[in-house]
Structure formats: C-alpha cells, structure tokens
Design a protein around this nucleic acid. Structure first.
Lengths: 338, 338
DNA sequence: TTGAAAGCGTTACCAT
DNA sequence: ATGGTAACGCTTTCAA
C-alpha cells in the first residue's frame, strides 16, 4: 500500500493536516516540521493521490483531448504540440482517439467529462456531436470546426485560403481539368478547402466542374482508389487537389503504377506538409499547415479560458485562423509561379 | 454545477444511497424506484463523477501508457491497438509522450502513479528508469525492454531474430560491405537487432566490421546524416541495415541525392514496415513488426495481470516475443532469395 | 504553530 | 426495500 498523509502523520505523531500544509508549501507550519515532514515523506515513498486531491479541489489539472486518429502524423504533430505546452504549464493530457467514429467520439465526450477534466480540446469527425458541447461544464476548444451557432472557440488553419492558394497555383501552372480527391464529405476542413478551391477557379474566370469531386476516407488507400475512379470517369484529368497529404500519397501511387509522371503528365497537390512529403522520391507540392503551432495555440487559448472562467468572467468564442503556405515541389509545374 | 446523487435524492426525497444502488444496478431497490431514479437522473443530466468513484473503489479503470513519440506511425499503430482493445474492455487510456527524454519519462512515471492508474504500459527510452518500476504498486508491461533482473512482463517483436533475418537477406543478395544505421546506442530494440544482425553474418562465415555502425536518433534526418557519415567513412559500402523505416527513409533520401540507386547500387533494408514503405516510389525492403498486435497483446496481458493480482495471486514476469517477417521490396536485390 | 473537523461524490455496510 | 453512516485521501477552515 502507498503511504498516505495520515501514515506520515502517525509516523511523526502530528496531525495529518500539518502534513498537508507542509507538503503543499502552505503557511501554518514551522520550517522545522516542514523539513521533517518532507524528509520522512520522501523516505516513506509518499506520492500524493491526485484523485483525492482532484475531488476536493474540483480540478484535476488534466485536459481531455479527442482526436480522430493518430497514425496520420498531422495529428501526431498537433498532439505533440498540445502535450508539450500543457506539460510546461503543469497540466496533463488525457488523449482519446475516436478512429473517425461518431459513436466513439460521443462515448469519449461522456467519459472524459466523468473524469472531471478541466477543459476539452476536440477535433470532431463532423458536426453531429457539437450539440453535446453546450452542456459540457468546462471550456472547449475545437479544431477545424466552426459555425456561428456554436459557443466554443475554434482554431485551425485558414482552410478556405489554403484551398484558394492551391487552386491559384494549379491554374498558374496551366492546369484546367482538375479533380478533387477529398475526405468525408461533411468533414469541416474539407468543406472549407473545397470552397476556397472552387472560389479560386471562379476568381480566375474559370469554371470548376463539381462532378470531378470524389470523396472517401483521409488515408492512402482511399487516395489511391479515388484516383482510379477519377481517371476512369474523367480520363482528361490533368491535375488533382487532394484533401490531405496521405490521400496525395495514394494518388501518387496510382500515377506511378499507371506510368503517369506527377508534375509532368499530371499536377498533384496535397494539404498538410507531412514529413514524408519532402522526400526526394515524393517531392509533393502541398499546402503547409503549422501543425505543432495549432496544438500549442489550442492549449494556450484553453488554459486562458480556464483561468478567465475561474475568475468568474464570461468568455465568448473566437475563431482563430492560422496561415497556410504553398510548398512548391516537384508534383506540380516545375518553374516557380507568382 | 453538475448534479450529484445527492441532488437526485433530494429531488426524489429519498436517501442518496438508494440512488447509488439504483444507478449501479445493485440489489436493494424496488424496480419502481430504480426506474424513477434512472429517469430523473437522465432528466437532470447526471454524470457519475469517476474521480469520486475511483477514490472509494481504488480503481480508476484507466491504464497509463508512456510512449517515446507519436509522430512515428509505428507508435501510432501500437497506441491504436492499445486503445481499441482497452476500450473494448471498458478501460480508458492515459497516454503520455516522453519525446525520447529520460527526464520526461521519469516525470510521467510519477504523475501517472499519482493518477492512480490500474496498470502501466511503457516503452522506455533506455534502461535507466527501470529501477523505478519496482515500487510501482500496479502491474507493468514493458515494450522492447527485457533483462533478467527486472520483474515485469515485456512484449516485443523478436528483434534479435529480425536482425538475423535482415542479415541473412542482405548476404543472400550478395552484399558484403554492410553498414548499420541505428537509433540511440542503448535503445533496447537496437541492441537486439544489432546482435542478431551480427550473428547472421557470423553464421554465414562472414565477419561484420563493427566500425561500420553509426547511431543517432530514430528519425528521417538522422538516417540522412548518418548515411552521409557512413559513405564518407566507408565509400565501399554496398548495403545498409537501418534501425527503423524512418531512418531508412533518410538513407534513401541521401542515396537519391547522390544518384545511387537503392536495390541496384546499394541495398537498403529497414525495420517496422510502416505504411509509406510500400509506396511504389519507396518500395522499401523491411522487417515487418506486428504493430497493432503488439498493442493488443500488451493490454490483454496487462488486464490479465490486473485480474490475477486482484484475486490475490502472484504473477511472474514473462517475455513475450512476436514474429518479425521479411518484406522483400525494391531496395534490395530484385530476385527473391531463399 | 498546531489540532480538529467538515466536506468533496461516491460505494459499502450497517440498521431499520 | 430503504435510511443512515463510515470511509476513500486530501484540502481548508476554524479553534485552540
């Protein structure tokens, strides 16, 4: 059995409240007893029970984080940003993976509340669980989800702008027969990326044929099979805007297998800029997201909201948007464009 | 404020212990009151406080998991296996990332205990923190760490065998001037992989020059720079055994930039078989690990040890080894070998 | 400075 | 079947 403060108190023949005061650097104990307590506590291998502490303090110093997957290094990077920054501020992270399942996400939203986290960071699969947020008692920060009728802060890359930049780049390269390969149709990020992309075409006086949009899951396999579908339906396709880099990797796989040279026969652009995108064998042109910063900013904003709330102040939701950036590599036209 | 069982009791003008019984499907309440309690609880939006529950039950139904990083999809896959299986058994996961830092790892070992987890799964950076395990009060499962003087179960791929297989394959391909590019020198997995690899040479009557071993971190950049170092020191290098696929990716990058064709000019073999290894642009020959299964088995064994312990039985540490498998792709000799 | 006691939300055990 | 109460380990307030 782990020793408790009562055991320490018994050992020293003092009251356990004094032990508590000593261990927490609270006033009300002589320097002498404090030193003695700390020493014997260490000797006995005492470790505070943070569950008991959480019960009385009504704060667990823990933030719940719900992410859809963890194999995609984008979320790995975001999670790392969250964890690093939280730890630096003395908070722990309770990480949950919804596996792109609405049901799992819903379950996690419930269990995480029961665990009395001090705040919640979540990237929802789509909008369907957002109604659950309104009776969460702690601050919530969303990633890639924003609508005017919700009351929590969201931080994401400016996906619409990212899509716009991608479109402009493809057009500048001279591509005209573009297809879109994207993730789940209702995924918030995808909606904005697509919107910006189509707007980019429009602003160039071009029309984008929305039949050329194919959607499935955000992984390599889906990118691969959607590329096939796209080319089967539209053999004249000269370029592809991918929902993320994983899907672009699948697209590249399809092209390779069909002897189509990316950047020459077909322009390919991704989204995220994951580590592998820069490999010389890949050289994927993509829209970079500040992944680590997204995590860092989310937790900073959340911690701030927690502090404000504890002071009894009201907070109102913000929409924080980070800058996307074109990374021009080998899978789109070679020469740099304006 | 979240309603508590006392609030429900007050509402119904019954004792809160009856509410507890009703909500937990324990005997001692009439079906009538049970239904009433459940109904009003739902109506009031009651959510059990699992922290209070944990305090009295001395079980949080939570498993702590400490992994060194999460950007490498190997750990992503392992974590997914752990989380899926734990959830299926009604356990939650408290996931921590040590970022390959001994200090962070040590801190996490402490905080995770304070959070009263029911068990711990950990992949240590190296052996230095293993002494901390002996005064952990809950079952511990290690990944890729095993020595006879420790008392916890470990599950990993048979790394020694994996290294052996890699060596045999390289030799069969006809390579003789092999270099090793590996992670931190004390990393347990690397030690066994290297040992098996050298043994493979020996068993073929060949001598492996240990000066050709270069080590750094388990990432793409390290693989890249170590490849350069290796070729600078040993320009006659004809093949490379990489500590993991990420490092192999870095090696491939170096080769590409120096116009060396993998599989033709230089044989390259990795370890893990991450998703990207199979891409046609990469086609990395590698030693496959059953990543998801590693996670699944770790949690299953842990849950078993927890159950045994709760029955008051003693458990003794096991070393569970999973089979590695050669995946022969394009970065080593083309024709299949025995 | 120290001791005593209440209370956090829950479960479990005792009466009734 | 129900009510009452102790207990989990801790922090905090109030007395002494």
């Amino acid at each position: 059995m782990q020793p408790t403060i009562k055991d320490i108190a018994k050992e020293l023949d003092i009251n356990f409240s004094s032990v508590s005061r000593a261990l927490n650097n609270k006033p009300g104990v002589s320097e002498e007893t404090r030193k003695l307590v700390i020493k014997t506590a260490a000797g006995m291998g005492y470790k505070p029970n943070s569950i008991a502490r959480g019960l009385v303090n009504r704060s667990t110093k823990t933030i719940g984080v719900i992410l859809p997957d963890i194999i995609n290094p984008v979320f790995g990077a975001i999670a790392t940003g969250i964890i690093d920054t939280a730890n630096a501020n003395d908070y722990d992270i309770f990480l949950c993976i919804s596996n792109w399942s609405n049901k799992k996400e819903r379950d996690y939203i419930h269990t995480i509340q029961q665990k009395q986290v001090d705040g919640l960071i979540i990237k929802t699969v789509d909008d369907s669980n957002q109604k659950l947020f309104k009776d969460i008692q702690v601050p919530v920060i969303g990633h890639e989800s924003w609508s005017t009728n919700i009351n929590y802060t969201s931080v994401s890359t400016d996906n619409e702008k990212g899509g716009y930049i991608a479109a402009k780049h493809l057009i500048n390269c001279g591509y005209r027969k573009t297809g879109i390969i994207e993730g789940p149709i209702y995924a918030s990020a995808g909606v904005y990326r697509r919107k910006g992309f189509i707007q980019g075409f429009r602003d160039s006086g071009l029309e984008f044929d929305e039949n050329r949009i194919f959607s499935n899951k955000y992984d390599i396999e889906s990118g691969y099979s959607l590329a096939r579908e796209l080319f089967n339906s539209y053999p004249d396709t000269d370029s592809i805007f991918n929902g993320n880099d994983f899907m672009a990797l699948g697209t590249l796989k399809y092209l390779e297998e069909n002897n189509l040279k990316p950047g020459k026969d077909v322009g390919v652009i991704g989204f995220d800029n994951i580590g592998m995108a820069g490999l010389p064998q890949i050289k994927l042109t993509t829209i970079k997201q500040p992944k680590y910063s997204i995590g860092r900013i989310m937790i900073n904003v959340l911690l701030d909201e927690i502090a404000i709330k504890n002071q009894g102040n009201e907070n109102f939701p913000q929409r924080i948007m980070l800058e996307p950036k074109l990374i021009h590599r080998g899978t789109t036209c070679r020469q740099k464009t304006a």
